[in-house]
Design a protein around this nucleic acid. Sequence first.
DNA 1: CCCTATTCGTCAGTATGCTTATTATCCGCA
DNA 2: TGCGGATAATAAGCATACTGACGAATAGGG
Lengths: 154, 154
Amino acid sequence: MLEIYNMPGHYIRRMHQIAVSVFADRMAREGHDLTPVQFAAISAISCNPGIDQATLSGLIAYDRVTIGGVIDRLEHKGLVRRDVSKRDRRAKVLHLTDAGIREFEEMKTIVRSLQSDILVGLTPEEQTTFLNLMRKAADAGNKLSRAPLRINRD
Amino acid sequence: MLEIYNMPGHYIRRMHQIAVSVFADRMAREGHDLTPVQFAAISAISCNPGIDQATLSGLIAYDRVTIGGVIDRLEHKGLVRRDVSKRDRRAKVLHLTDAGIREFEEMKTIVRSLQSDILVGLTPEEQTTFLNLMRKAADAGNKLSRAPLRINRD
DNA sequence: CCCTATTCGTCAGTATGCTTATTATCCGCA
DNA sequence: TGCGGATAATAAGCATACTGACGAATAGGG
């Protein structure tokens, strides 16, 4: 019996691996080509048009450098527009293109429905318990991660 | 309120991000330099001296290609020895070096004790519930992942 | 013994996800 | 106005983590 088979870290990684795989399979099957982080970014831009990359990073809890690369690829796919901010010439403000808006609308339903596939082994009650425990643990551990969630309410 | 804030996938990713970060912090603090997958590989080789890379991959649920790179780095650090198998000249059999054995002994306790830090927001009862739910979900979703756990009992 | 299917490790390529460092810019303060 | 510290984005580099493809070798059936 391996050490790791008793470790939460191992199962968290396995769940992540399964989640990413389910996401990719479903995308391919529906004829789309977005990764989880690309969907998260588009989702956040959709809710916050004109957001800059650093604020976006905090909103979806990713590293700024990572998001720079993600936005590169979304821009290249023609889903996101990136312009220099008029208020701060260091910052780039982000908007969805028409294609990006369409893509998000189509993906939204798919991504929502794929969530339960990730937890296919759990009953609905267990899924709820599981989600609540993750919320609690992720909230408590927020500062421990390299890219904490940063939500500034103005 | 963002879409993703209601999605299990998001929280699974956050938990993974937190787990990896806690692991890295603790390693650095203790003066070690191993990643989670490197520890998993060493742990599995320790329990199964002479295992080949493909079987190792199945035992810790990683992709063959990924493990190839991981073993490269462990070999380069002098923790693992890689030899061509006498029974199958395609395969490489793996052994821990003396340094690898020492490293694993030192790391074992540290990695065990860091697990509860990952779930610091949960009570002991919640941690148990959480681990059991993850075991159940990861087991059920095993085939869905790209690199399923493959444990062959001979 | 040969043919075919399978398997092992690896290569090339893509995308995360992070670290440290750098440049450009902004902001507060004197 | 000018200066120092902070911040936005990026560059360079490293380590996962995967896909598809490939050569080498093995295993099974006829």
